[in-house]
Design a binder for these strands. Sequence first.
DNA 1: TCGTTCATGTAAGACGTTACATGATTGT
DNA 2: ACAATCATGTAACGTCTTACATGAACGA
Lengths: 175, 175
Amino acid sequence: MGMSLRYALLGLLSERPAAGYDLLQRFKESLGNVWSATQSQIYTELTKLAEAGLIEVSDEGPRGRKEYTITAAGLADLRIWLTGTEPKRQARNETLLRVFFLNLTPPDHARAYLAGIAERSAAALVELDTLRESVDWDDSELSRYGRIAMAWGERFHEMNQQWALWAREQLPPED
Amino acid sequence: MGMSLRYALLGLLSERPAAGYDLLQRFKESLGNVWSATQSQIYTELTKLAEAGLIEVSDEGPRGRKEYTITAAGLADLRIWLTGTEPKRQARNETLLRVFFLNLTPPDHARAYLAGIAERSAAALVELDTLRESVDWDDSELSRYGRIAMAWGERFHEMNQQWALWAREQLPPED
DNA sequence: TCGTTCATGTAAGACGTTACATGATTGT
DNA sequence: ACAATCATGTAACGTCTTACATGAACGA
């Protein structure tokens, strides 16, 4: 399903009112790990959401700043999406796609490629660690699910790293 | 990066010549687990690849069937993409996006949602098992990397399942 | 003969990326 | 004064999905 950006924005606005610029920051610092979006996309989508009556401008500030608030209709939509519809499993993994065709390169290139994956996974784990420390883990419900989402990331990168190391062992031995 | 479909097709054609229809089958049965594509997309992209000189029509059969063969230019392009460029890590996971906002639903809805993830992961593991048995694991290089890619899928779904079960435990107790 | 599979193509619209464009405000 | 940050908007282009459209060949 498309529509995900729409719900990502409604989700963030369900916590508290915010302007496009604020939402952009939140994508950069945390939500973007789960659903990335560009500045251009965010502003365009906010305009559409306002036209559809799912959010509304609740305040205006300096520099043309427009703070949006979610409406009752928006909240209703969000709740329906949340557990009322099946998440479509997306199968698009560029890294793995390359693995599929790695037989076109000499084994040492393949080994280097897999080592690269392991390294990037390790780096991602470090990044997540940093993020965990930077987040304000107050006791809200938000933090419960934020923690759960973050745990997924940790398990994912850990898995990825272990797999890449294992995969390297599966290649024909050096020299 | 976009372009991935392009390289998926070049990759398949690097193994042997094939028509759009054949490639479509291969997406359905195996490659689609890693990079999905629709019929419409495949035929359109094949036309573009032929125009760009990366593949060419090498044979024509009944019902307008056109068999394509990869050209030297196509193979060169594919090799460069394979290890010469960094795979961009994509962060778009609709399932996790919902988790982020699960605090909007009562805990038993959240529990059901997580249980659903665990179930679908288990089902995916069964599917992969079936696939493994259906694939002709001859001794080629292809099968080595096919096996490695499949192992990723197994580890991924296993991880996902374990995470979902753990996550359910993190919610406030029933009643 | 009749249904299924084989086989290709295109059009409309949604979604996403990159780049351009503009300007007010704040802090040093 | 000047740089950095805050703040929004749009245009062009590429990719993806859904749906429509067509017809030949094969097997029962």
